[in-house]
Design a protein around this nucleic acid. Structure first.
Length: 291
DNA sequence: GAAGCGTGGAA
DNA sequence: TTTCCAAGCTT
């Protein structure tokens, strides 16, 4: 639909990874950083990472501790380990170049269906089906007239997305990016700005009077969870350097509940985000095994 | 297939 | 202040 492409030309955000000359590695880093994370928060961290580690080999050499520290406040720090493992695999198996085949990309740590399609499309111009939560929501409203989407991608969604994807690869890539942007800026989950939508007159959901409930809210809850405990404990080591196990595990300095504290620390160690050496918790210096 | 995995800014 | 949630992936 030309209206969406025209809208994108006029309204695309100037995200740093959309600048000319950004490498496939830059695209991959941006996509992983953007998982469940607002783009506005990703931008400064992405710039920092690409300056420090402009190519996969640079991050592979840097190792996990530096990556975890530089991950800053993006959340889900296992993604930093995934990127290090990606970098190692890219160096070892792909001559230091990010692969362009979505099926190959899919085998990299932390790269799922969406990210593989996105990197193949945005970095290499491949004609792939890019289905993130924004695209799914836009297509569901536009063509199905439903207010939101299910938790998981259905087969029918893929075929519908394929059906509306332009045949010409460069145009398909543009379409993917444009629909994603439309979902991020206009056709938002909570309060969509239909008056500003370039395809409101074609939208089944809008034409039907925007029926239905808003998408089911996810059970989240954070305060007091293992997730919060993990975040606090890891943060302590990132900011203070090596922390004696007697303090981190043995006292309630960082986290009050003893049993939960042990569970969280064990999880962090199991995930490769922390190591315990010589009685101290430290960030891992050895490469995270990427399998 | 459901559950687990962080964070900080906006509403 | 509290609540809600933002370009998913893995087990």
């Amino acid at each position: 639909m030309a209206a969406v492409l025209d809208w994108f030309t006029a309204n695309a955000r100037a995200l740093p990874w959309r600048a000319p000359g950004v490498t496939p590695w830059g695209i991959l880093v941006a996509e992983v950083m953007a998982h469940q994370t607002p783009v506005a928060r990703v931008s400064p961290v992405w710039i920092e990472w690409l300056i420090r580690w402009p190519a996969p080999a640079d991050l592979a050499d840097a190792g996990p501790a530096a990556a975890i520290t530089a991950w800053s406040g993006l959340g889900y720090p296992r993604r930093a380990l995934h990127l290090v493992a990606c970098a190692e695999r890219i160096v070892r198996d792909h001559g230091g170049e990010v692969p362009c085949d979505p099926q190959v990309l899919r085998t990299l740590p932390g790269v799922g269906e969406y990210t593989a399609a996105a990197v193949a499309c945005f970095a290499f111009g491949r004609r792939t089906i890019v289905l993130d939560t924004n695209v799914r929501r836009v297509l569901a409203r536009l063509f199905d007239g439903s207010p939101g989407v299910a938790a998981h991608v259905a087969a029918a969604e893929r075929s519908r997305a394929a059906a509306v994807l332009p045949a010409d690869p460069p145009r398909a890539a543009r379409w993917n990016e444009a629909v994603m942007e439309l979902g991020a800026l206009i056709c938002t989950a909570r309060t969509p700005s239909c008056p500003n939508c370039p395809v409101r007159s074609h939208c089944r959901w809008h034409r039907a009077g925007r029926p239905g409930e808003p998408p089911p809210r996810r059970p989240q809850g954070y305060t007091g969870t293992d997730r919060q405990a993990r975040g606090r404990l890891l943060h302590a080591v990132i900011t203070d350097g090596p922390v004696p196990a007697a303090i981190l595990a043995g006292t309630d300095t960082v986290w009050p509940h003893a049993e939960q504290r042990q569970r969280a620390l064990a999880g962090l160690v199991a995930d490769g985000l922390l190591c315990c050496e010589d009685g101290n918790y430290i960030l891992p210096s050895a490469p995270a095994t990427s399998r």
